[in-house]
Design a protein around this nucleic acid. Structure first.
Lengths: 201, 201
DNA sequence: TCGATACGATACGTTACCGTATCGGATCTC
DNA sequence: GAGATCCGATACGGTAACGTATCGTATCGA
């Protein structure tokens, strides 16, 4: 992490060691505030207050806001269910339903949307988020699509990336603020529409 | 608009009338700064500076930032090409290519992404943006899809909304910061994948 | 011409957050 | 126990934007 050099050398520094508990509280508070107010709205003083920590304890570890956010975002997990269904259709359905569920949580939605919007201002942060959260999820879906092309459940010459973004995007475009929440059954409709195609037989 | 009551009564108020030119400059500067920094990053002093206007000239018309933004966003247009192609496929292709092009412009992308991310903090602003920009565009695409279902170019029982969001979302999910720019031919790949479906024949 | 209002400019006090410094107490190693 | 470092707390000066007030000038109706 962005912290001092003890880990690098392996040696112990003299004096009181840094509190692991404080560090966890800081990261946790950072992620919570990130989801609430976005990267631009996040401020160190609020992080310190929520973490129950002095400002100095933060500045001792990270030089500034962006470095703190960078480490915080790296701690995010991407809890998409590992697909182990029987059919490709069932796997896609489970993945898409999990996405719908996550985006229905206003907290996750905000986290994603805020980072998306602020990507231009914080490019390193956006890159880290992509590596940590977004790309692993995409890869899970890509794997299912490729598997389908091999087993014959999907067209052999399927355009994996186009299909990937159609799936992900259908949830993303639907889950905007101001729209009605995604209704149950939406994932199934998308998957079936993708499988059968919209063209006439 | 949010301005004073002369329009409502139709009567002229005594004294020097408000400058139409200043009002236009303010709205224009607001939209420019909105695209650059988002709603949260926008500040009245910068709007005044860019518009070449005193702060009082802004506060005389709008009580605060959100009301100004509300009027500014209402002035946005949604320049999707009116489809008048020969086939449904050509129309969808043209619409999707126009979307790709617009999202390739960093300015439009930021405008959209920033508003999306800040939707939670400015719900009225988000609603206005949806009414003015987003929903009209969706309706154009819906109309083409419905037409296809009638003419037989598309399946008769097509799920219009699912298909709509798959189309829009494929561009949206692909056009993130940190990703490579959308390559030419992407729109065609999406449209053809949607028409044929990814399921095996 | 005169009163009323708007204009751009600028000064003002307020608030929020920045990053730094310092405090007394706590917790490590030697 | 001595020295070093960290702890949470808080004070500090600096900066940015807030929204209000006040300039002298400009432009309208009566």
């Amino acid at each position: 992490m962005g912290t001092a050099s003890t880990a690098a050398t392996g040696q112990r520094r003299p004096g009181r060691p840094r509190s692991e508990r404080a560090e966890r509280a800081i990261i946790e508070a950072t992620l919570a505030l990130l989801a609430e107010s976005g990267a631009a709205g996040l401020c160190i003083e609020k992080v310190a207050a929520r973490a129950g920590v002095g400002k100095a304890t933060i500045y001792r570890r990270w030089p500034g806001k962006e470095d703190l956010l960078l480490d915080a975002v790296a701690c995010l997990k991407a809890p998409l269910p590992e697909p182990r269904g029987l059919s490709v259709r069932d796997d896609l359905l489970a993945l898409l339903e999990a996405m719908c569920e996550q985006f229905a949580d206003p907290c996750h939605m905000r986290e994603f949307a805020l980072l998306l919007g602020e990507g231009a201002a914080y490019p390193r942060l956006m890159t880290r988020y992509t590596e940590t959260v977004i790309e692993p999820r995409r890869e899970v879906i890509r794997a299912v699509l490729r598997r389908g092309a091999v087993t014959g459940e999907l067209r052999e010459d399927i355009d994996v990336d186009a299909a990937l973004f159609m799936m992900i995007g259908s949830v993303l475009a639907r889950s905007r603020y101001g729209d009605a929440p995604v209704e149950p059954g939406y994932a199934r409709r998308v998957v079936d529409e993708m499988l059968s195609g919209i063209g006439a037989r």
